[in-house]
């Protein structure tokens, strides 16, 4: 582990009920990089994110965020440690307005002035949201919900962003825009991203590191370029 590693996972075991879904996961994400976790359905990708953010309690193993052990930290405290999790299905609260959803992302912050600045920045970043401040979550298109979910996470100025299937249900054009935005955030603000994807091509195109999961284990963790170019590997694990 080097000082620049923001997220370090060691021997993480977690699941629902008796049978573990994750069997001893090891993973390192350096600060200011994008890691893409790919793998077949049921490989445990979503479970990995849920275990990282404490939504399910790991049975064993360690999760270190900037060297700090997160074990036993309640879910609602993780955002205060700098971890933002955009869950499966994006978690836009349909009954609240765009503005309320976004403000919710910064309510925990003590620095009210900076929370206000972060909110303004998100509105600048996502123009369509600024035009729909008073609309309810359920009135938005898929692309707008995506922006809202991402924007709401960014209002909290996270160090580590966990994204569960950001491309799900979106048009290729919107997916490309989202991936470009992640790269832009990494370069400009040093944001670290761990994203889980079914859409292997676009995930590996944006990522620095590719992590292949299979049946609850990490089978390969390598530079994304290498995964993209290694035909045998793609055939064996990624099916394209």
């Amino acid at each position: 582990m080097s000082a620049s590693d923001l997220l370090v996972v060691r021997g993480l075991v977690a699941g629902y009920g008796a049978a573990p879904v994750l069997r001893a996961i090891d993973l390192t994400v350096p600060a200011g990089t994008i890691a893409a976790v790919v793998g077949a359905n049921g490989a445990g990708k979503t479970t990995l994110l849920r275990a990282l953010s404490g939504m399910i309690r790991p049975a064993a193993g360690q999760v270190l965020l900037a060297g700090e052990d997160l074990r036993g930290t309640p879910v609602e405290q993780l955002v205060r440690r700098g971890m933002a999790h955009v869950p499966e299905g994006r978690g836009v609260i349909s009954e609240l307005t765009v503005d309320e959803n976004l403000r919710l992302g910064g309510l925990w912050r003590r620095d009210r002035a900076d929370a206000g600045r972060a909110l303004d920045e998100v509105y600048q970043l996502f123009e369509p949201l600024a035009r729909r401040r008073r609309h309810l979550g359920h009135q938005l298109s898929g692309g707008e919900r995506q922006m809202l979910a991402l924007g709401r996470a960014l209002v909290g100025r996270p160090r580590l962003l966990l994204l569960d299937e950001p491309s799900l249900g979106l048009a290729p054009r919107v997916v490309a825009r989202t991936m470009a935005l992640l790269r832009q955030l990494r370069d400009r603000t040093g944001l670290t991203v761990l994203l889980v994807e079914q859409n292997v091509r676009s995930a590996l195109a944006v990522a620095d590191q590719g992590v292949v999961m299979s049946l609850g284990r990490v089978v390969i963790a390598a530079p994304a370029v290498q995964l993209r170019d290694d035909v045998d590997l793609r055939h064996a694990y990624l099916g394209f």
Binding site: M55, P74, E76, G91, L96, L104, W108
Partner: peptide
């Protein structure tokens, strides 16, 4: 009020609200 927003969010979507730092 912020507390009102937290209460509504916690009622509509408890899991997401916890991820956003709300003490549900």
């Amino acid at each position: 009020t912020p507390v009102g927003l937290r209460m509504r969010a916690a009622a509509f979507a408890p899991e997401v609200s916890r991820l956003l730092g709300v003490n549900v």
